[in-house]
């Protein structure tokens, strides 16, 4: 009799635990879904900002803006090596 009572008690306890765990899992699942959706929305926003940035930063716009405000000409043929040479020559003149 004692055994029956004990096992019935244990079974009931496990059942309660299971129910509780089930509930917790569902709460976590729903949180994951919420996070996934927020994530997707953020990804969408990121794509939008990337696209916007790409439009603003397009070579066409950069060229237009640099011409208008900085009076820059299109890229021309220069070379780093020669630039360094020039700098060293200039220093030499200063000395």
């Amino acid at each position: 009799m004692k055994k029956i009572i004990f096992f019935t008690f244990l079974f009931s306890f496990l059942l309660i635990l299971l129910t509780f765990l089930n509930y917790k899992i569902e709460v976590i699942e729903s949180k994951i879904i919420d996070t996934e959706i927020i994530n997707k929305k953020l990804e969408k926003d990121l794509v939008f900002f990337k696209s916007e940035w790409e439009y603003i930063n397009s070579p066409e716009n950069i060229s237009y803006l640099s011409k208008k405000y900085l009076h820059h000409k299109p890229t021309e043929l220069i070379e780093l090596q020669y630039f360094i040479k020039l700098l060293s020559n200039e220093r030499h003149i200063d000395e």
């Binding site: 699942e29 729903s30 879904i33 919420d34 959706i37 997707k40």
Partner: peptide, 12 residues
């Protein structure tokens, strides 16, 4: 529990 439906994730 969830503010949105699971199907919405798929839709997105």
């Amino acid at each position: 529990l969830s503010t949105v439906d699971k199907n919405e994730v798929k839709k997105v």
